[in-house]
Write a protein that binds this DNA or RNA. Structure first.
Lengths: 214, 214
DNA sequence: CGGCGAGTTGATAGCTTTCAAATGCCGTGG
DNA sequence: CCACGGCATTTGAAAGCTATCAACTCGCCG
């Protein structure tokens, strides 16, 4: 990445906070809808969000899961190209585009923060595409669990327990297969002793063994 | 997009040209290789390029096709995450990262050009994911042909003739199916009278009918 | 206790891959 | 100019994988 060591100064951070509003969304609450005029960009303070695109044929493609520290809300032709929905209880910064563009005139380095975020997103999108196109769905799911285990808020490195913020349908919509397939492949991974389902949302991972699949 | 009306001033453009080298790559020539230390970013003057990622299991995933005006060569952890290969005879600007980062200090607006390019890429990546995850491969291919027809250099709006810069394998690697499937689905589209194959690289499109699929 | 939604499981149908072989295309060398 | 070789493309048949549809279980909450 071009600007990996970049951080804002206190002054720049203050200026950004001054135009931001702290908002809260409970689980499953919609933040904005695809096609809506885009007025705000968001930064996650805590929680998790999914970005999804509804297609004519009824398919619902999830583009990304966003985590603490991530920004989202880019617009295309003035409107949001995807809907944003809170997966769990989520706290956000809401930043108006109009004020942000003015602020960048004064503090150009704030733009670098956005470039950095967008570059992060392109990396995530690359990994997502790789996952979603693995010929065998069991490999898609295995890779997905590894991705999730990178989120410190949802994975305990000591107990190896992953807490899934999303349900089976979200996973299926992210990886491009049917809901039932999520269950079947979780069972297959469990039979192979790569994971252990403690409850429907809590899964113990054997990251070593899972990585050996790749 | 945030900065759709953005253009450089003459002075900024000159400064950028001053650190750029014009280079040429014949068809099928490699520009850089995945894993290589990333020293340059590129802008296409004319031609076309594919960005591909080679996986352990032998699969070759194509992330994007890049066209005239597009920039590529982003790095992750100092190295290129994908290989870049010219599809046809291609002319490029080669811009050293070191000089570019210095130049941005002097002309901050040049960074906006990159932000704009990266945002363009995220849009393309979104459309790519949608295409590559359609449950029916014939729909993937149909959507792909529509995407290609947006490139004025390769699509004649009057005759409706599309010239494919890539071969069957490239298409398969981009859309996530087997090479043979490319042929079979082209035949299926031809049987449905949505396209007409003039030669292996030249295809007449009925864009109206193809769009009706979606 | 009952009811609802999420998750799981089973059987079959449908689609795509794989493997194999044929055909077409094009540049090279005789 | 033609024959040949190599590569890209196309076609065929069978095997493999996943979606679909239906039924069932589980957990949670009124």
């Amino acid at each position: 990445m071009m600007f990996r060591d970049f951080t804002l100064t206190d002054k720049e951070r203050e200026a950004l906070n001054a135009i931001s509003t702290k908002i809260h969304k409970p689980a499953k609450r919609r933040i904005y809808t695809q096609g809506e005029a885009g007025k705000y960009v968001y930064r996650i303070r805590s929680g998790a969000v999914r970005l999804e695109h509804h297609l004519h044929d009824g398919r619902n493609q999830i583009f990304a899961f966003m985590w603490s520290g991530d920004m989202f809300g880019t617009i295309e032709d003035g409107v949001y190209p995807a809907s944003a929905i809170a997966l769990v209880d989520t706290y956000l910064f809401q930043i108006p585009y109009a004020a942000l563009l003015n602020l960048i005139e004064v503090h150009p380095r704030i733009q670098t923060l956005f470039l950095q975020q967008v570059l992060n997103y392109t990396q995530a999108a690359r990994r997502h595409l790789l996952l979603a196109t693995y010929p065998l769905v069991v490999k898609r799911l295995a890779g997905f669990l590894l991705e999730c285990s990178k989120q410190a808020d949802f994975y305990d490195r000591h107990t190896n327990i992953l807490t899934l913020a999303m349900d089976r349908r979200d996973i299926a919509d992210y990886l491009g297969f049917a809901v039932e397939t999520t269950s079947r492949m979780l069972k297959e991974l469990e039979d192979m002793r790569l994971i252990k389902r403690l409850s429907s949302q809590r899964i113990m991972l054997d990251r070593r063994k899972i990585m050996d699949m790749f």
